[in-house]
Simulated scan of single mutants.
Amino acid sequence: MIRVVTPRHQPDWQLVSPGILLLCVFAVPGAMILAGHGQPAFNGVDTWWQAYSFTLHSPLWDAVNGILNWVGYVGMLSAQGVLALALVAWKRPVTALFVAASGIAALALTQLAKVVVGRERPVGAKVLTDTGSYPSGHVSATTAFLLVLAILAGRWWMTSLAALGIIAMMISRTYLSAHWLSDVVGGACLAAGVVLLMWWRFRDICIRENALSDGRTIWAARASRRRQAGEPAE
């Protein structure tokens, strides 16, 4: 685990500035949707993309996107919980708190925005959906988990995989007619902004915690101490 979790130190401005900018990119379309009573200035782009998505439909892509429909929400939230528990076991409790807090904050703000904006979803969704289209909960959950994973891994290839995963989920939600194009952009920006700002607050202590860890799980460390004290390990 100690070789997998290698978060890098970044200057404050590389986290705060893009974090705030991303939240603004999320907030402005939401305000425009409210001001336009569900018909914002960019509605033409949304409807054009939706029409294009219909041309891509096929049984194969229906099956693939059906899987992504489950993975993108329940799967990502579950994975984030498992990651937090694993970090606790590997003696990184503050890092686990960062993972859990990032996921909860992104989820809570997404659900709040859905209620406040109250945008209607596209007609003809291929999957079951709840109320509120802006922003996309699936894209928000996917972005939160994959970005957290990329930050903790600290490697370029993980960042590249995270970006591809987020883009795939954005395309999937519009393919399934579950969201407008602006919904998925908003979901990605909201979650990314939240994670970057959360990492800005947790960064130093998480990096220090990782450096001080010996890479053993809690129970392995306890067993080692018992052996050193001459007690039989259970």
Rank of each mutant, 00 (worst) to 15 (best):
T47N: 07
Q50P: 03
D62P: 08
W61Q: 07
G30V: 00
N65T: 12
L56G: 09
A63H: 13
L23K: 04
Q39Y: 09
G19R: 00
P11V: 00
S17C: 01
Q39W: 10
W61D: 11
A35N: 02
L23F: 04
P18A: 02
F54W: 11
A31N: 00
L21F: 15
L23M: 08
T55A: 13
W13Y: 04
V25N: 13
L34R: 03
F42H: 04
L15W: 06
L22G: 12
L60C: 06
G44N: 12
W48L: 13
W49Q: 09
Q14L: 10
L60I: 14
A41S: 14
G44L: 10
P40A: 01
S58N: 07
S58Y: 13
Y52I: 11
H57A: 12
A63N: 11
S17G: 01
L60A: 15
F42V: 01
L22F: 14
A35K: 03
W61K: 12
T55N: 09
W48E: 08
F26L: 14
H57Y: 11
N43L: 14
S17V: 03
D46I: 09
Q14Y: 08
H57Q: 15
Q50H: 06
W48N: 10
A35H: 04
L34M: 00
L60N: 10
T55H: 10
P59M: 11
F42M: 04
V28P: 00
L56A: 14
D46Y: 10
C24E: 08
F54I: 11
L21C: 08
L15H: 05
S17Q: 00
P40E: 04
P59V: 15
P18H: 03
G36L: 03
L15K: 06
H37F: 00
I33A: 02
A41M: 12
W13Q: 00
G30K: 01
Q39F: 08
Q39R: 15
V28H: 02
S58P: 09
L23S: 05
G38R: 04
W49G: 06
C24K: 07
I67M: 08
C24W: 11
L34A: 00
A63P: 09
F26M: 12
D46W: 09
V25Y: 09
G38L: 02
F26Y: 15
F26S: 09
W61L: 15
I20Y: 05
V45D: 06
W61P: 12
G66I: 11
A63V: 11
P29Y: 05
A51P: 00
P59R: 14
P29R: 04
W61A: 14
L60G: 04
A63L: 13
W48G: 08
P11Q: 01
N43E: 13
G19K: 01
W48M: 12
S58T: 12
V64A: 15
Q14H: 09
A35I: 01
G66R: 11
P29Q: 04
G19W: 00
T47R: 15
Q39K: 13
Y52N: 08
I20A: 03
Q39C: 13
